[in-house]
Design a protein around this nucleic acid. Structure first.
Lengths: 190, 190
DNA sequence: GTTGGAATTGAACGCGCGTTCGGTTTACCA
DNA sequence: TGGTAAACCGAACGCGCGTTCAATTCCAAC
């Protein structure tokens, strides 16, 4: 019972204040236990952080595995854009940590986490490569376009708030349209 | 002489390790002075951070003021994309800090910095609004498209390294193309 | 050469840090 | 009811933190 609450508290606090600015005592206070008791659930602070990141990236890759329609490139691009936004919007704290606290990891830990991130980046790369090969997309550089796509989609997290002007589905749709535009998918005549 | 070196050292260290993880003693050591001497150049650590951010955002707004061609929307979009990439690529540390350490600011300081950031966001908003009004761009939502554009362009900083596969000009060109695509500028027939 | 102000030192302040650990409570099973 | 293992407390450890300040050094102007 307490274990998950420790991880949840750490995730919220790390995201809000940054790893270095959060003390073990703060996390313990959030959970309602003494600082010493935390060490029943993590060997140290660094491992607590790394565990959050690895769990997030594992979830991300597994979730795309299930969401990938595996059909034609344009449909996969659409699915990827919507999936990425939905997944990230639901986990703003975990996303923020996975992006921002890479620098707080020791080198060996960093390498493992970075490898997972790289693996996810190959997803849009594969979609765009197939799309270009099939002649339904036009990008000057697959790698650049993939990075640009991910950056654009992840950017939603900086401004999206539940109950805002647009709901999830509307946001997903608008971004999916822009994604198609930026990789040169011919627009359907209306 | 020492003043600028203090700010430069602080900028590099804050970007590399994060504000909370950098001590005044680290900054002093980088400059080659004792920690106490720093207080001739800043009243405290917080002000040092805020000064770096404000300077960066002031520079950004002033530089766009000079770079804005002020002609038709499509040309301005192109100029904006290229300008944004160029400006940010040249100042990775300052950019990183201005994005990441907003949470390290006290509320009053935060408000001032945030206002500058908002002002910059109105730049692409204005361009897209004009473009849509002129019928040369098509976006479902000007605000969203602006945020998406900025996120995409700023994303270059996460992977660009001098001496890499593509030089600045090539990167600028590719991103400018994608920017046109994502806001629905009709492609020129080749 | 002297002087005066700026630059710098280095010790000191109280405090909170990550982590350890012996002792105490809790909860469940025999 | 008794026993046991996990959960937890709370004090303690050495250390580095941001900041202050009296004392010292430096250097340009007279």
């Amino acid at each position: 019972m307490t274990g998950p609450r420790v991880r949840a508290a750490a995730e919220r606090l790390f995201a809000r204040h940054g790893y270095a600015a959060v003390s073990m005592r703060m996390i313990a206070a959030e959970v309602g236990i003494g600082a010493g008791a935390l060490y029943h659930y993590t060997p140290d602070k660094q491992t607590l952080l790394a565990g959050l990141m690895r769990e997030h990236l594992d979830d991300l890759l597994a979730a795309w595995g299930k969401a990938d329609p595996g059909t034609d490139p344009v449909a996969r691009l659409d699915a990827f854009a919507r999936f990425h936004i939905r997944f990230h919007i639901d986990r703003p704290d975990a996303v923020f940590i996975a992006y921002m606290e890479l620098r707080s990891l020791e080198p060996e830990t960093f390498a493992g986490i970075e490898a997972l991130r790289r693996r996810y980046e190959t997803v849009p790369e594969g979609i765009l490569r197939d799309g270009v090969a099939a002649g339904v997309m036009a990008v000057a550089d697959v790698k650049l376009a993939s990075m640009a796509l991910i950056a654009m989609l992840t950017g939603v997290n900086t401004w999206y708030r539940d109950g805002g002007r647009l709901d999830r589905d509307a946001v997903e749709g608008i971004y999916a349209d822009m994604a198609r535009g930026m990789v040169g998918v011919e627009r359907v005549s209306t």
